[in-house]
Design a protein around this nucleic acid. Structure first.
Length: 739
DNA sequence: CGAAAGGCTCTTTTT
DNA sequence: GAGCCTTTCG
C-alpha cells in the first residue's frame, strides 16, 4: 500500500518532513489524525525506523488505541514496540522503570483528583488550617498549577507573597510529605518527577534520548510547561520532534496548558518546518463559515483561513426554548424527527454541553421518550463509591503505605473503627515514626506475645484493628499466588464488601458495577501475580471517560464540549448557548478565559459534518434557583445569512405554547402563566396495565411492569426482552399494545 | 461507635 | 439540588 497516496499536498509534506523539528498546524477536520498515523507508518515502512524507537503522545488513551489500530492496518503488522500513550501513562512507565534514581519506588500508587483532595484536607488539618477559611479545592488547584510549572514546595515558598500563598505553601509542603509517606504520586507528580529524573540522572536521560529517534506529540496546544519540558528533554539528542495542534482548539488552560508552547515552538526550534493544514474535509460550508465567524472574534489569535470543497449545506439552526426541560424535549423530538425522515441514525447525533450538570435534564428527556443514548461521563464509573472502595483494597494490598486507601476502607464495611480510634492510631504511628499499617502490625505482634500494650486502645478496639490487619495481611499473601480474578473474588468476599454492598441501598446496581470492574480485572488474569495487579491498578488510575466511548452502537451521544474534542458527528446540538453557561460566568472577568470559552464553542461547532443546532433556554435553573439568561454573546457573531429563520417547534400533534421564539428578536413574547398545554392526541395512546405486552420502536417487545399516573399522563415501566427495564412516558414513548 | 437527620456550602471543564 | 460535614441520639 502506498502510504502517500490519498494525501493532499500539504498532508504529504507533513508526512514526508522527517528530519528535524516539525510543527503541523492543523485546523479542525483537516485530516490531522490521518497525517499523524501516516507519518508514523511512513517512518516504519519507508524509512525503516524500528517502531521501538518511536514515541507518540496522545491526549487520551482512546486516541492511542485508535492510532494503534490504524497503524496496524497501515503497516500490516505489529507495532507493539512503539511507545504510544498519554503523557501520564508514559511517565508512569518511565518512573516504574527508572524512578529509583530519584527515590521513587516502583510500587507507587497513583492518586486521582479525589484522593489528592482528601490528602490535602488531611494535610491542612494537621497544620491547623481551617478548611472553611481556605477551600481545600482552591489550595489543590494552586498546588497543581505550581507543579505544572515545575515548582517544588521549596521553589514555591520563594515565590509566595500573599497570605493565601503562605497558606498554600505550608499545605503544599505537608501534602508532599504525606504523598511520600504514602508512596504515592498524584497526576502532576507523574510528569514533574519524570522531568526531575531526567535532570538528576544524565545516564537515564541519555538512555531515553538515544532510544527515541522520533517523537510525535498530538494536541500540542493543550500541553503544559512540564510536558513541553519533557518533550524537549527527550528530543534533546536526535531533535526529530513533530508536534501537531491548533491554537484555536486550546481549551485546557485551567489544567495549566499553555498556549505559548505552540506559539513559541518556532522560537525554540528556529529550524522547524511549519506545515499548515487548512482544507477541511469534515463540515459543510455553512458550518465552517459559522465556526469561523465565531472564532475570528478572538483578538489574541493568528488569523487562519479554513476552506472546504464540501457542499454548502443547511443553515445553522438557532433555537430558543422556554426552560431547560423544553430544551431537552426539543432536542429529543428533533432527533426523533430526523431519524423518522430516514436520513439519519441515532448514532449520527451528539448533544454537547458546557457542564456535566446539564446532562441530567437531557438524560431524563431521553429516558422519557425511550430514545437510546450514551452518556460519556455519567457518574463517572471510576469515581463511584463502590468502585473506589474496591480499588482501595487493591491499592492497599499493592502498597501498604497508601494512607488514603487505608483510611477509605479500614471501616468499610463497618468494623467498629471510628474517628477516635483512627486519630489515636495516626498519633501513635507518628510518634513511632512508622506507617499506620506498620503500627497495626506492631499491635498484632504485641497481642500475640500477650504484652502489656503501650497504647490506650480498648480490648474491643484492639481486636477490631488486629482483625483488619490480619485480613489485609492474608490478602497480601494470597496476592502473591492467585491470579487477579481469583484475588478479586477473594477481596470482595473476605472483606465482607460484597455482602455490605448488596445489602445496602441500590445494592444490585452497585454490585453490577463491581462486576464490571471485575471484567476489567479479567484482562489481566493471564499475567503473573505481581504484574497483574500492578497493570490493573495502572489502568484504572489513568482511564478517562472518553476512553470507554463506544462508537459502534446506534445511540445518541451526550458529551461535554471538552470531551468532544477530536470527535466528529454528522449532527451536533450544542445546548445551553447562554451567557453564564457558555461563556461560563467564571470567565467573565478575564479576557484570556473568555477567549477560551469562545474556542470551546468553536470546537463544538466544528465537530459537525452536516447540521448544527445551537439551542438556548429563556429561563434555566442553575444551582437550585431559576434565572433568566441572555442568549450567548457568541450567537451575535454569526451573520444572519448563515442562520435559518426563527423556527417554531411543534411536538407531534401538540401545540407547545411556551416553546420557541425568534432568537434574534431579543424580547421574549411571554411565557404561559399556566402549566404547558395539555397533551393532545391522547386518544391514539393505548390504555395499559401491568402484564400487557407492548412493542417499542427501539427496544422491541416487552411486558408492562407498572403504570403510574403523572400530571395527565402515565409513567409506564416496561421490561423489554433483552433490553432491560425502562421508565417511559406513555404519551411520548410510542408504545404499541400487542395482543 | 454508628446511623440518621439537619444544615451548610458551592458548583467548569479532566489526565 | 446534591453532596459534604456536623450534630445528635441510641
Amino acid at each position: 500500500m502506498d502510504i502517500l497516496a490519498e494525501l493532499n499536498p500539504a498532508q504529504r509534506e507533513a508526512v514526508e518532513a522527517i528530519g528535524g523539528p516539525v510543527l503541523i498546524l492543523a485546523g479542525p477536520g483537516s485530516g490531522k489524525t490521518r497525517v499523524i498515523t501516516h507519518r508514523v507508518a511512513y517512518l516504519i515502512k519507508v524509512c525503516r525506523v524500528n517502531p521501538r524507537r518511536i514515541m507518540a503522545v496522545t491526549f487520551t488513551n482512546k486516541a492511542a488505541r485508535e492510532m494503534e489500530a490504524r497503524l496496524e492496518q497501515l503497516v500490516s503488522g505489529s507495532v507493539g514496540n512503539i511507545t504510544l500513550g498519554t503523557f501520564h501513562a508514559i511517565c508512569a512507565r518511565i518512573l516504574r522503570q527508572d524512578g529509583k534514581a530519584i527515590n521513587v519506588s516502583p510500587r507507587f500508587v497513583i492518586y486521582d483528583a479525589a484522593d489528592q483532595l482528601s490528602l490535602i484536607k488531611r494535610g491542612m488539618q494537621e497544620i491547623n488550617i481551617d478548611p472553611k477559611q481556605y477551600a481545600p479545592a482552591a489550595v489543590a488547584s494552586v498546588i497543581s498549577a505550581a507543579k505544572s510549572q515545575l515548582l517544588t514546595p521549596v521553589d514555591y515558598v520563594k515565590q509566595g507573597h500573599s497570605y493565601f500563598e503562605e497558606i498554600v505553601s505550608r499545605t503544599y509542603e505537608r501534602y508532599q510529605q504525606l504523598l511520600e509517606e504514602s508512596n504515592a504520586l498524584d497526576f502532576d507528580d507523574l510528569l514533574m518527577k519524570a522531568v526531575r529524573l531526567f535532570n538528576k540522572s544524565p545516564e537515564v536521560l541519555s538512555k531515553y534520548q538515544s532510544r527515541y529517534l522520533h517523537i510525535l506529540v498530538d494536541e500540542f496546544q493543550d500541553t503544559n510547561t512540564v510536558q513541553y519540558e519533557l518533550v524537549k528533554q527527550l528530543a534533546g539528542k536526535h531533535r526529530n520532534i513533530c508536534v501537531v495542534g491548533d491554537p484555536d482548539q486550546s481549551i485546557y488552560s485551567w489544567r495549566s496548558a499553555d498556549l505559548r508552547n505552540i506559539l513559541s515552538f518556532e522560537k525554540d526550534y528556529p529550524d522547524a518546518k511549519v506545515v499548515i493544514l487548512e482544507q477541511n474535509y469534515r463540515s459543510t460550508k455553512m458550518i465552517l463559515d459559522t465556526a469561523s465567524s465565531v472564532i475570528s472574534a478572538n483578538e489574541q489569535r493568528k488569523p487562519k483561513e479554513l476552506w472546504t470543497d464540501n457542499e454548502t449545506g443547511e443553515p445553522v439552526r438557532v433555537v430558543e426554548t422556554y426552560t431547560e426541560q423544553e430544551e431537552a424535549r426539543f432536542v429529543v423530538s428533533e432527533i426523533e424527527r430526523l431519524v423518522d425522515l430516514g436520513e439519519s441514525r441515532l448514532g449520527d447525533c451528539a448533544v454537547m454541553y458546557r457542564t456535566n450538570a446539564q446532562s441530567r435534564v437531557i438524560e431524563e428527556a431521553f429516558i422519557r421518550y425511550g430514545t437510546p443514548y450514551k452518556l460519556v461521563a455519567g457518574t463517572r464509573f471510576y469515581e463511584r463509591r463502590e468502585i473506589k472502595d474496591v480499588i482501595a483494597y487493591f491499592r492497599l494490598i499493592h502498597n501498604p503505605q497508601d494512607v488514603v486507601s487505608l483510611l477509605r476502607i479500614i471501616n468499610i464495611p463497618g468494623r467498629g473503627i471510628g474517628q477516635q480510634t483512627l486519630a489515636k492510631l495516626s498519633e501513635w504511628a507518628k510518634s513511632l515514626g512508622i506507617s499506620q499499617m506498620e503500627a497495626l502490625q506492631l499491635l498484632v505482634e504485641a497481642k500475640e506475645r500477650e504484652e502489656i500494650p503501650e497504647h490506650s486502645f480498648s480490648a474491643r478496639t484492639v481486636r477490631a484493628l488486629t482483625d483488619f490487619w490480619n485480613l489485609m495481611d492474608g490478602l497480601s499473601t494470597s496476592s502473591r499466588v492467585l491470579d487477579l480474578v481469583a484475588l478479586f473474588d477473594l477481596v470482595v468476599g473476605a472483606s465482607g464488601y460484597q455482602q455490605y454492598i448488596q445489602g445496602g441501598p441500590d445494592g444490585e446496581e452497585r454490585w453490577e458495577n463491581i462486576l464490571e470492574l471485575r471484567s476489567v480485572a479479567r484482562e489481566y488474569q493471564d499475567l503473573n501475580p505481581p504484574e497483574g495487579l500492578t497493570a490493573f491498578l495502572e489502568k484504572v488510575s489513568l482511564v478517562s471517560d472518553v476512553d470507554s466511548l463506544d462508537e459502534t452502537t446506534d445511540r445518541v451521544t451526550l458529551i461535554t464540549l471538552h470531551q468532544a474534542k477530536g470527535l466528529e458527528f454528522p449532527i451536533v446540538f450544542i445546548v445551553g448557548m447562554e451567557e453564564r453557561l457558555l461563556p461560563h460566568f467564571r470567565s467573565f472577568d478575564d479576557l484570556a478565559q473568555m477567549e477560551e470559552e469562545r474556542r470551546l464553542c468553536y470546537v463544538g461547532i466544528t465537530r459537525a459534518k452536516r447540521q448544527v443546532y445551537l439551542v438556548y433556554a429563556f429561563r434555566r435553573t442553575l444551582m437550585g434557583s431559576s434565572a433568566v439568561n441572555q442568549p450567548s454573546r457568541f450567537l451575535d457573531d454569526i451573520p444572519r445569512h448563515l442562520v435559518s429563520s426563527p423556527s417554531w417547534w411543534q411536538e407531534g400533534d401538540r401545540q407547545v405554547t411556551e416553546a420557541i421564539y425568534s432568537w434574534n428578536g431579543n424580547s421574549y413574547a411571554g411565557p404561559p402563566d399556566s402549566e404547558p398545554a395539555v397533551v393532545a392526541g391522547k386518544e391514539a395512546v393505548p390504555e395499559l396495565k401491568a402484564g400487557d405486552h407492548v412493542k417499542h420502536a427501539h427496544f422491541g417487545p416487552g411486558v408492562v411492569v407498572s403504570c403510574k399516573d403523572v400530571n395527565d399522563d402515565c409513567e409506564v415501566v416496561v421490561a423489554f426482552d433483552g433490553q432491560g427495564v425502562k421508565r417511559l412516558l406513555l404519551s411520548l414513548a410510542g408504545l404499541e399494545k400487542v395482543d
